[in-house]
Amino acid sequence: MSDFVRFLIAGISLGSVYSLVCLGFVVIYRATGVVNFAQGGLVVLGAFMTHQLAVVNGIPFAVAVPLAMLIMAGVGLLLERVVFRPMVGQPVFAMILLTLGVVFVLEQVCAFFWGYDVVLVGDPWGVATVDLLGTMVNVSDLWTIGATGAALAAFFALFRFTTLGIAMRAGAADPEAALAHGISPQAIHGLSWAIAGAVATVAGVFLAAGPKGVDLGLGLVAFRAFPAMILGGLDSAEGAVAGGLLIGLVEVLTAAYLVPAMPSLGANFHVVMPYVVMIGILVVRPHGLFGTIEVRRA
């Protein structure tokens, strides 16, 4: 039982990070129609950036993370301005390929500055555990859930309540009508990339937190989050969260229970399981859990 609680918390922790990765996808997809494969690259760069600030430059972790988010928002803006804005009007397919190109560039940048070895992001938790209702759980898992929860709440509050968030949703729904009311698509695109960069940083930090650390392989997490995104429905932020949590839980619980019980499935079956769940759900709900079916009056 206490094992189960521990796995549950580990699953929610992983799932909430997946949610953040998916949110980065969704925010860009909704604003631009582009499936952004570079999101994984931003996650890695965000984690390395935090390593740079917290470990190399010795800035306190609690300051280093927001600072890294800010810098990564800038990187997002820059990418939009330099790489993607000149491509507006080109087929979406070309833009998607371009995002793949950006992944390789980001990888090279990371390799150049930080090499190929695993480095720590400088979080204070390490392998510490804490007694939660009679179960020993990782402190870093609890912080992950708390901080990603806060980031998600901030994200939803921005979109729900602020004029800027409403403008972003309007621009995603009907760019021309939004423009006709003074909402510039360039501003919306830039802002979306900035948010994607900041959100990726939080995801990267918590993926690398504790003893795990960051290396270039961290970018693969974007592909691990992929089923979560499809599950949630590409254009739904709520779906990103639900899909992320579900996939995180499935992955951890599969590794904890199914793999030991059925060794014939292979030691890495927990990586495959999210795809199995994804395909299963898509058969029943082709739009994903939350994908939009357009609101229109008959």
Partner: peptide
């Protein structure tokens, strides 16, 4: 060209 998946008030705020 109203924003169909926004509320009335959100349309106005946009």
């Amino acid at each position: 060209r109203i924003f169909t998946d926004l509320t009335v008030e959100e349309n106005l705020r946009a």
